[in-house]
Nucleic acid binder design. Sequence first.
DNA 1: GTCTATAGAAGGATAGAC
DNA 2: GTCTATCCTTCTATAGAC
Lengths: 189, 189
Amino acid sequence: MAQGVGTRPRGAGRAQLHETALRLFARDGVEGTSLQSIADDMGVTKAAVYYHYRSKDDLVLGVLAPLFEELDALITRTEAHRGRQARLDEFLTGIVGLIVDGHSRFAVFAGDPYVGRLIMSHHDLLHWFHRIVAAVGADTDVPGRAALLIFLSGMTAPLKDAGVSGLPTAEQRHLLLECGRRLLQVRRR
Amino acid sequence: MAQGVGTRPRGAGRAQLHETALRLFARDGVEGTSLQSIADDMGVTKAAVYYHYRSKDDLVLGVLAPLFEELDALITRTEAHRGRQARLDEFLTGIVGLIVDGHSRFAVFAGDPYVGRLIMSHHDLLHWFHRIVAAVGADTDVPGRAALLIFLSGMTAPLKDAGVSGLPTAEQRHLLLECGRRLLQVRRR
DNA sequence: GTCTATAGAAGGATAGAC
DNA sequence: GTCTATCCTTCTATAGAC
């Protein structure tokens, strides 16, 4: 069956490259991972990597691309709800799912200094963040924004803990969701 | 006045080196900061940096050293309290203080992949984490540990937000403390 | 689609003059 | 305490054979 644009079968090598690169990025950081080490891990040479992407930056963006799409869809879904509580719930559920099932893509996205700078100059991370902030109604509310930031940037940490990563993913989701709800619950003065 | 061990005045250059290195580490990540760029920023040469530290790893540890001492003191102080609630309170207040007043030392410590690996092989980060976990009584409690991890690793994010970093430090402390309390409050089933 | 070979830049680190 | 000069390694990236 034809599966997309063009006739060329878009290599299985590409999928393996994504998988390998993501794993090393998550473990050693993007700047701590050379194209050489990726190639070594795959048992090929650097030049084989350059066949798929013409620069390291491109590779990083390529690896993160699926996350960008899912993030975009989640925000759109969130914006469709009415009422802050409903939006918060949709967003939290969705983002927790992305993190637990995302094979550490989110950790690389949110935790790596190199990625931060890269995104800032390509996709504009700020645009997404503003949409998120507005979608959950935290744009006029400094404490709310602070809580959201803590959650977004801290959320991936428990998954590296042995006691948590050993749990079934359903429980991981539940655990993170609990934390998110506790942290982001609106407070009346 | 004699001020410490030895006769040599432990240069003012060293203090400036610490300040510069910390600023660049926080902005670009440790691996994204070359000794060359540090030297350039200070208006000296690489060799001048090597006078103070014999390797980059040593420089990183030197820059973080004050944090290690403060962290150690805080944990000891926390362990002295009786009752989980009192310990949690002492710890939260202390750690928030370290982060707000620490000139981004904690951000580099907790957020940089390079530092993670470095500490693992020198000071043993795990030892500290276990002491922290035990001190606030989260060692047998997986959800509690997850919440603690989210807080410790996410806590520095709001301070990079313009709306938060513009506040007086007293309010920043209050804001973070609120989030910590909400997140770490013990839940009965 | 994968390889060898190599260019060219940048990084960490050292020796020794001033 | 800071400099110049240099070494060695590693990195990104390209050219061109198979």
